[in-house]
Design a protein around this nucleic acid. Structure first.
Length: 582
DNA sequence: GCCGTTTTCGGCCCGACTGTTTTCAGTCG
């Protein structure tokens, strides 16, 4: 069983326990475990085999035993028993807005409702309002939430689109009179790979004015809720937006709160309590009732004797402990990137010629660029034959001569890892390239042992410098290959093969958890844009987000190095080694 | 159910918003 499957079981368990009315803390424990497993870079099965389940944050004796049972037998007796007490489909009702565990339990016990369809039928028939404490308005709200649920694609928004939408809205907010600041918060600011809804925060004195302006925006479909500090909107395309408005002197605590993660916020509040302070989005409150306001996030952290913690690692996955011990890493920044080692020209499936791409890279301040067009077997993207590789070298040399030394252009290739693990170019071609990126594009559905062996074989090939988008996943569209990632990382570290964080927002592959695990095995990372158009070079910012979420420093990322260092490193690897087996 | 510079037991964050209630429960983040 994969991490995701186990996480799903625990999520269901949490839902059913909650509907049953169990202790919220027990429910929380299952939710936390599910959440942690989902983002965990290491394979649960491997951790299990190593007898290290208890080292996973949020996994104690009871949950470790349940993971053990699940991995051993594929089922969980506790879950089966629970399903006998509470209909499993009730857990779906919790997906409906304004329906929580209490209402779900009442719908079930008092009306026999166990599915979303039955809920909708009852709401349409006006039967929900007959329950005590429920009126017409509650019923109407639930109907609206049901519609929203059906309309909303089940998937979260990819980070790329979320950044775009947020940028648009923030620009508008900043133009509203009296708005001093407007910033993104939530999982968008934390650079999660997908975003559930947009969290935006504004510093302004005149809250009423901001609220009125926003409610009149043309793309607002409806206002879901509006209060003193918080407005909740649904845009015409179904996207949900949370907007907080706070006075500037409280902006720091408010931004911190709106950014989360929830687990991180809870940790900080607990630390505040240890100091006889109560922390909320409005600031600190002392025992005597006096307030301590924080205009900047730094002031909140300082009051807790912590350095400012970057949003990308605010997940309660060790950052608070690291901060307390003064061991926060200095995370890699976009400005640290000096080159791009993954880009396509019109020699294969890119949109522009090498010169245009190179000039764009130069414009963006890059010092080097690797042209990595596809290899021959990928016919549909005009993969290069060995002859064409040779011809391309002449063009690269020509562009290099005319651009001069300010941009170093490397000739690489994104070489297909064939179904048997051999590479799509013979050694005679590979050895002439400056950089070999090996990638999977086909036969991604091979069984675990086979696809893992195939990648391990590619990694062991002495010509391979980097593994491109290692799992091959497309977010929301194509599942990752079923790789034994630990084996891949171990081998990559041993053979000094760089693991790519592919920064295309549809890929983000490695993901954050994997990248962090890879660093744990001693792998070197690279952030590649996989640009097929000059505009795509800017994708690298998404890759930086992933790298930061993985706690990567500048030293961990190959393309933060200066061009001569990178070339020296690649050149050193070019020499045939004793482990050469072709 | 988890967890511990104090605890192996007894804690476990804080507030906004809504609707249906005359004081609060449920949901959400």
């Amino acid at each position: 069983m994969r991490n995701e499957e186990v996480a799903r079981v625990f999520e269901r368990v949490a839902d059913l326990l909650e509907i049953k009315g169990e202790s919220v803390y027990r429910v929380l424990a299952y939710r936390r475990a599910a959440e942690t497993l989902r983002g965990y870079g290491r394979d649960l099965e491997e951790v299990w085999k190593a007898g290290a389940l208890r080292e996973i944050p949020g996994v104690g004796e009871a949950i470790a035993a349940k993971i053990d049972e699940l991995l051993r037998s594929g089922r969980l007796e506790y879950f089966e028993k629970l399903k006998g007490e509470v209909p499993e489909t009730l857990s779906d009702l919790l997906q409906v807005g304004d329906v929580g565990p209490k209402k779900a339990a009442r719908f079930w016990k008092e009306m026999g409702i166990t599915t979303i369809d039955q809920l909708e039928e009852a709401a349409r028939a006006g039967r929900l309002r007959t329950l005590s404490g429920m009126g017409e308005r509650s019923e109407a709200r639930i109907l609206q939430s049901l519609e929203a649920l059906r309309r909303r694609s089940s998937d979260r928004l990819p980070l790329g689109r979320a950044v775009h939408e947020a940028g648009r809205l923030l620009e508008r907010l900043r133009s509203v009179a009296g708005v001093e600041r407007a910033e993104a918060a939530g999982s968008l600011r934390r650079q999660r790979e997908t975003v559930g809804d947009l969290d935006l925060i504004v510093a302004a004195r005149d809250r009423e004015r901001v609220r009125q302006e926003v409610a009149e925006w043309p793309d607002v479909a409806r206002v879901l809720g509006q209060g003193e500090t918080k407005t909740s909107l649904e845009l015409r395309d179904g996207l949900r937006v949370q907007l907080w408005v706070h006075p500037p002197e409280r902006f720091g605590s408010a931004w911190l709160y709106a950014t989360g993660s929830k687990a991180h916020s809870v940790r900080l509040r607990e630390m505040a309590l240890d100091r006889d302070l109560s922390l909320s989005e409005h600031g600190f409150k002392r025992a005597d009732g006096k307030e301590i306001l924080c205009r900047e996030e730094e002031e909140v952290y300082r009051a807790l004797e912590l350095p400012w913690i970057p949003p990308e690692i605010r997940e309660d996955l060790g950052e608070v402990e690291a901060a307390r011990a003064g061991r926060l890493p200095r995370l890699v920044e976009e400005g640290d990137l000096r080159g791009d080692l993954h880009a396509h020209s019109e020699w294969s499936d890119g949109a522009v010629d090498i010169r245009t791409l190179a000039e764009a890279a130069l414009d963006q301040g890059l010092a080097y660029l690797a042209i990595t067009d596809h290899s021959q077997s990928l016919g549909m993207v005009q993969g290069l034959t060995p002859e064409r590789v040779h011809e391309q070298r002449a063009e690269i040399d020509a562009v290099q001569r005319s651009l001069g030394p300010s941009l170093r252009i490397l000739q690489g290739a994104e070489v297909e890892i064939l179904a048997d693990g051999s590479l799509d170019f013979p050694d005679s071609v590979l050895t002439r390239l400056d950089l070999v990126v090996a990638s999977l594009h086909t036969s991604l559905r091979q069984p675990r042992a086979q696809v893992t062996e195939r990648v391990l074989r590619a990694i062991a090939n002495p010509h391979v410098d980097m593994l491109g988008h290692p799992t091959g996943r497309l977010i929301g569209k194509r599942d990752p290959a079923d790789l034994d990632m630990e084996a891949v990382f171990r081998s990559a570290a041993e053979h000094q093969v760089v693991m790519e964080i592919n920064a295309n927002p549809e890929r983000l592959d490695l993901n954050d958890g994997h990248a962090r695990a890879a660093l744990g095995f001693g792998c070197l990372l690279a952030i590649g844009s996989d640009a097929h158009h000059p505009d795509h070079l800017a994708f690298r910012s998404f890759g930086v987000g992933i790298a930061r979420r993985a706690w990567a420093t500048r030293q961990n990322v190959l393309n933060t190095w200066a061009a001569p260092e990178v070339e020296a490193w690649l050149g050193r690897r070019r020499r045939p080694g004793p482990r050469d087996r072709g």
